[in-house]
Each structure stands twice: as C-alpha cells, then as structure tokens.
Design a protein around this nucleic acid. Sequence first.
DNA 1: GCCAACGTTGGC
DNA 2: GCCAACGTTGGC
Length: 155
Amino acid sequence: MKYWLLKSEPDAFSIDDLQSAPNKIHCWDGVRNYQARNFMRDKMQLGDLAFFYHSSCKVPGIVGIVKITSDYYPDNSALDPESKYYDPKSKLAQSRWGMRDVKFVEKFTQIIELRDLKNNENLQDMLILRPGNRLSITPVTAKQWHAILKMREMK
DNA sequence: GCCAACGTTGGC
DNA sequence: GCCAACGTTGGC
C-alpha cells in the first residue's frame, strides 16, 4: 500500500466533481509530465490511497482522499485532435500518455490548507512543499500521510 | 497579473 | 549532448 498526492485545478476537476461522478469514479487524465506519468504507471498500485489537492485556486490545499481503482491504461485523449489534451506527437495507435481511475473516498469537512502544511514540522520533506515543485503526482510517505490525517482531526 | 522555477523543444 | 528560447505551473 502506497500513498500519493494528486493535484488538480478545481476549475477543471474538483473533488465535488469526483463525488458526483457515476459510482464516484472518474479517470485521472491529462497527465502530461513524464515523471508524474512514471509514478502513475510504474509505482502506483491498485488500492493505493491518495490525497486530493486543489491547486491554482483561492485556498490551495488538501480537500479529501481518493482510492486508485484501475490499472494504468492509455489516455486516448492525447490522440484526439478535438481534446484539449491532444498531443500531436503521440504516435498513432499507442499514446505515450496514460491514466488510472480514482474513486471518491472522503471529502474533508475542512480543507487542510497549503499554509498549514508548510507550518507542520513533520512535513518538511514533502515534495509538494519544495519550492518550484510542479509535479501533479507525488508520492507521500506513510509518516506524512498520518501526520496530515492528524491535522484533520485537530481542525 | 506577476514572476520564479521548472520542463520541453529544437538548432547546432 | 549542450543550451537558449519558450511554455507551463502555481503561489502570491
């Protein structure tokens, strides 16, 4: 069992969108970064849990938890010229990009704000907190995971 | 909207 | 393989 943090701009896809999706499951598509893709393709496993993080919004932070519910499969939106994720360099049959499905697990009653994460001594090594880190998918250690859950309880 | 920090691209 | 130019991300 591994832990992750998935970033999304809530204007594009929010935790509310996931909660209201059929069966509360939706594909996590649109990843167009090799390192993030490799995490998702090679390291992620069925049943892993991930924090859902809202970025590029008024109050950035962790808003809930999702579960990985599918294997890695090709992201065909990279092949569709009509899609905003179209990638003309993805060759014919097989896209170089892919995705997994995630299922809604829980929405926090209160967002765990980025500024609170920054102030937590136990989270100094978190990738998301490193200056300039823009990865949309990052691993979270078990220690970090539980430290963040503890922050939720204290709210 | 600004800007720092990255990632990607493409000429050489 | 280097590196300058360019595009993107994302907090503020």
